[in-house]
Simulated scan of single mutants.
Amino acid sequence: MSLIAIIVIFSLAASTLQVSWPRGTYTLVKPKSGCPQGWLEGWRQQDSEDTHNKNFFTPGHHFAGSFSGQFVKYQYCTKNPHQFSNRNYWPRGNYCILKHGPSCPRYFRPGCVYWDDENSRNANKQNGILPSGSYGPDTRIDYCCRKDGSYKTYMSLPTNKPFYLLRFREPCQRVSGMFVREEIVKTDDENTANKNYVRGWHPLRAGGSDHVLHYCYYWKY
Rank of each mutant, 00 (worst) to 15 (best):
F163S: 09
S33P: 02
I184C: 06
Y107E: 15
G133W: 03
Y107C: 01
H211T: 04
Q37T: 14
S85H: 08
A13R: 09
T159I: 12
S68G: 08
C96G: 03
Y151R: 14
S15H: 08
N160I: 14
H214E: 11
S209E: 13
P105A: 12
V212S: 09
N88E: 15
R181I: 04
M1S: 01
I97G: 00
Q18C: 03
K161I: 15
H214N: 13
S85Q: 10
V113N: 09
G133E: 00
M1F: 13
N194V: 04
C144M: 06
A64Y: 02
S66T: 07
G34V: 13
N88A: 15
F163P: 04
V198D: 01
E182N: 06
F108E: 03
I129L: 01
K161V: 15
F168C: 00
T139E: 03
A14Y: 12
Y95P: 00
N86R: 06
G208V: 02
F10T: 12
Y217H: 11
L40M: 10
S66I: 03
F163E: 06
T58H: 07
V185H: 09
A193Q: 07
C96K: 09
Q18R: 08
T51H: 15
S2L: 11
E190L: 02
W43E: 14
F10L: 14
